[in-house]
């Protein structure tokens, strides 16, 4: 039984990755925009699962809370107000095959460079580590000591964007 569990928990990561790719393809190839968003939601949940298998349970929870629970709700919210059936008859794919192939090749090369240059640590021990205490404190410690300056810069940037969005929409209401 112990062997079976460790076998399963080892391959769970690959199962999750495969499913993530499948749902991501579903996002692109759905004719109906709401089906795309449902597939995107599943992708986000599965990405949270991948984080979980990599011992990053705090990131997994935040991924669910922010992406699955926040951003995609806004996507759905917008879609509900659009007459979708008009788009379904149209051709939804562009024809710039050569350009897109070039861009994809470039992206793959960049990701490969990042991947092979990454100093990977030991293999994650998953569930055992999370139940023992997890990485939440380590994340907080790193974020608020070593990387405090980039963190604060990012938060100011977000604040500026938020104020900007409010100002822009207010102007339009007046005119």
């Amino acid at each position: 039984m112990e062997a079976l569990v460790s076998f399963f928990s080892h391959y769970m990561l690959y199962i999750l990755m495969g499913l993530t790719l499948l749902t991501a393809v579903g996002v692109v190839y759905s004719k109906n925009a709401v089906h795309s968003v449902v597939a995107l939601l599943l992708t986000m949940i599965l990405v949270a699962g991948i984080y979980l298998m990599l011992d990053a349970e705090f990131i997994a929870a935040v991924q669910l809370l922010v992406y699955a629970g926040g951003i995609i709700v806004l996507f759905v919210f917008m879609l509900l107000l659009v007459a979708l059936h008009k788009d379904e008859a149209q051709r939804l794919f562009n024809t710039y095959t050569v350009v897109s192939l070039g861009l994809v090749a470039f992206l793959v090369i960049v990701l490969a460079v990042v991947f092979f240059g990454m100093p990977f640590g030991p293999e994650p021990a998953t569930v055992t580590n999370i139940v023992k205490g997890g990485s939440t404190e380590a994340v907080a410690g790193t974020l608020y000591s070593t990387y405090i300056l980039p963190f604060e810069i990012a938060s100011i940037l977000l604040l500026v964007v938020m104020v900007g969005a409010i100002v822009l929409t207010k102007e339009r209401v007046k005119s």
Partner: peptide, 12 residues
Amino acid sequence: LYILAISSVGIY
């Protein structure tokens, strides 16, 4: 955090 994260998916 887990409860908040999971229950935020319930809205769909």
